[in-house]
């Protein structure tokens, strides 16, 4: 608890210093308002926004894209990852493909998805799915690969059936890796959603920023950025809490 207090205190102090430096900068260098508005202006815009229903509509739109797309990537990622992991031949064949997909900037697929799935919700969902899908597969392969031969043999000695092997051995061994991949994946998901909304569509926090940008409304732009960052922190924090819940399984990562 003491640690948490300390962290929060330091965070508040740094944010305050940050805002002060910001204010000082624009005062000293006489920066035009549309390039960098003052903290006060931005603050006013933020308050203005959170008192409007449309803002919450946009936030919810993006949030639902992220959560739904992420959920889909979890389901398919776990299933496909497990399938690949348990079949060595398939794993050997797919590894180069998986590496290739991991290193290529999947964000580049956004225009294709927009053409294929339209300007609306569907394309954004797909983008979120693709961005978070591959880290999850990689994590299962990593987790399964870490299980020693002797562990499997011991389960065989106990005459454990397939389901027991999955629940008592494989799942616990994979959990820490899967949760790590969630941390990466959720941020990728937010990035994917925001950029996709920027490219096309009429709703969402990304769209809000695109609109602000094209109308040179810097306070709104910064507000959008701030809330995107806030969203990222909240979701990341959520996954970290999940990780704490499964703290015991971290022991697997020797």
């Amino acid at each position: 608890m003491n640690n948490l207090k300390k962290t929060i205190t330091y965070t508040v102090i740094s944010l305050t210093v940050f805002v002060l430096v910001w204010q000082l900068y624009i005062s000293i260098f006489d920066v035009p308002a549309f390039i960098l508005p003052s903290p006060v202006t931005v603050g006013k815009e933020m308050i203005n926004q959170i008192t409007q229903v449309s803002f919450y509509k946009n936030m919810l739109y993006t949030l639902s894209e992220v959560l739904l797309g992420f959920a889909l990537s979890i389901v398919f990622g776990l299933l496909i990852g497990y399938f690949i992991g348990k079949h060595p031949h398939i794993k050997r064949l797919s590894m180069p493909l998986l590496v290739f997909f991991q290193v290529s900037p999947k964000i580049a697929l956004i225009p294709i998805f927009i053409i294929w799935f339209g300007l609306g919700y569907g394309s954004k969902l797909f983008v979120v799915f693709i961005m978070s899908f591959f880290p999850i597969i990689e994590s299962i392969l990593l987790g399964l690969g870490n299980i020693s031969k002797e562990m499997y043999e011991y389960m065989k000695i106990l005459k454990a059936n397939r389901i027991q092997i999955l629940t008592q051995l494989e799942a616990p061994c994979c959990i820490p890796y899967i949760l790590s991949s969630f941390k990466v994946g959720i941020i990728q998901a937010i990035i994917g959603a925001t950029v996709a909304e920027w490219m096309a569509g009429q709703l969402g926090i990304g769209y809000l920023q695109s609109f602000a940008s094209s109308t040179f409304n810097s306070p709104l732009l910064i507000t959008g950025i701030a809330f995107t960052i806030l969203l990222g922190i909240l979701l990341y924090g959520g996954v970290t809490l999940l990780e704490h819940h499964f703290q015991r399984y971290q022991e697997v990562k020797q």
């Binding site: 990035i191 995107t228 922190i233």
Partner: peptide
């Protein structure tokens, strides 16, 4: 931990 990319529009503005 935040999506740093969010700053992109600001950088383009600046």
């Amino acid at each position: 931990i935040s999506p740093k990319i969010s700053i992109a529009p600001l950088f383009i503005l600046w």
